[in-house]
Design a binder for these strands. Structure first.
Lengths: 255, 255
DNA sequence: GCAGTCGGTTCACTATTTGAACCATCGGTT
DNA sequence: AACCGATGGTTCAAATAGTGAACCGACTGC
């Protein structure tokens, strides 16, 4: 493995749940000595890819990343397009919509558009990962994977969020099969009590599933007609975003 | 220089005006041989920091940058805060507002919020760099630099955009002095005809000037009362954003 | 068919990375 | 106050990784 890969591994240490790391911690996580890791950290810092907190000496992701990401976004405005599609979805459904990408066993929220139609609405913390087994988006994502691959993504001891969270793999797999058939997934209070989710998978280049578009509704407003209109529009929105991500319809099952 | 620096130099090749480069071009720009540059490009590509176009084989910035930038943004939402401040500025002034950062001899637009109050409004292309010598934001930025440093940032042959673009360094320096005194800069049709700009400098960590907040108004609506209210609010907005960027008031002249 | 591109490959040569051992400092315990 | 186990950071001989001229095949314009 080249030096560059090792340096990029360092950047990979930073996640939403671990946004800053110290020298010793980084060395431990990478399984390497401090001297080398320090050289990496310094190299990345001197170019603005990392910043060091002057008080606790930990490192966090730097402004150079924001700069480069913005160059990408200006050139090829995926986020802007996604935002517009989500806004349209919110207008069509009257409920909060979001887009998330698969990342390390979870779905990470990429964009949220809140509805302004109702005074009671679902709040989605962008920092909180969506579980694969208990959210509509997660089930929608898994439904595009080969059954074996999907079950390998289910944690051994899946976290229980509500009384309705599916506790065994069989239940989750059944939901996935249903979602694969329908083209969208429904979750009734499995992640948050009194919240229902409807989500459809999003595909990227080479038609690999890479995330999901979801709409979250307070259970009180979630009846059969609502499901009908929401699911139709969610599937549409997911297809539009997939198209911009470079997917060519129709999507295929991921082996 | 370490290998990591060289790899990060590769990422530095990509700009808004040159969003994709080929192997030979990259080697030429870096003054290095193709073999090494190819290894860099491949290393960066394999980790998603670059992507290669499958038809013309050029490389462009990859999704890993967007992912990392989003982690940074979720942890420390500078863009969101900036967007909110700009929105408030738009509400207060009724005109389009923008934030830009200094980058390589220009100001690069980071965020724009358009007004919806008037049917005639200024359109700002986020891909187009703002010139230092001919835009209100540019003058505001330069006004925080030491006179010698500022003049070194003025191109030898400054581009002429309109009949009112300042052509000689002396005029530009005078505008800067005025801006330094007022705390904001005014540009009347110097960059785009029939557009007036008002801008105030933005400071980052260690109180270095790093960009500017600006409001762009069609000349027809730009009278003395407008200037009064706009300038007051622009200065306020710039101070708020500077604060979030880690600047500690009061700003000081950059040596 | 020639000249000038392009992206990509090879391999002997060489400069860079490596990491154990080191130091100084900081909080908490005894 | 001495000790302990952390922390961030430094040194330098040994080992490994990066380097780049020359090369290839493909393509384009003449």
């Amino acid at each position: 493995m080249g030096t560059i890969d090792k340096a990029l591994d360092v950047l990979g240490l930073f996640t939403r749940s671990r946004p800053s790391v110290g020298l010793s911690q980084a060395a431990r996580l990478l399984g390497r000595d401090k001297a080398s890791v320090l050289r990496y950290l310094n190299a990345l810092q001197s170019r603005g890819f990392l910043e060091q907190d002057s008080v606790d000496r930990t490192y966090h992701l730097g402004p150079a990343l924001a700069r480069l990401a913005l160059i990408r976004e200006v050139t090829y405005p995926l986020n802007q397009v996604a935002g517009e599609v989500l806004q349209k979805l919110v207008d069509e459904t009257g409920e909060t919509a979001h887009l998330s990408h698969y990342d390390n066993g979870h779905l990470a929220t990429v964009a949220v558009v809140e509805t302004r139609l109702h005074s009671t609405r679902v709040y989605l913390d962008p920092a909180q990962p969506l579980p694969l087994h208990a959210s509509a988006s997660g089930i929608a994502y898994l439904s595009c994977l080969d059954a074996k691959l999907a079950s390998s993504h289910l944690p051994d001891c899946p976290e229980i969020f509500t009384p309705d969270t599916p506790t065994d793999a069989a239940t989750a797999m059944a939901l996935m099969r249903q979602a694969a058939q329908d083209g969208f997934a429904v979750a009734r209070g499995t992640f948050e009590a009194d919240v229902c989710g409807v989500a459809a998978p999003v595909f990227g280049a080479s038609n690999q599933v890479c995330g999901a578009v979801g709409v979250a509704t307070p259970s009180a407003r979630f009846d059969e007609p609502a499901l009908q209109t929401i699911s139709r529009h969610v599937v549409q929105a997911a297809a539009q975003i997939s198209h911009h991500y470079g997917a060519t319809r129709p999507p295929i099952l991921q082996e």
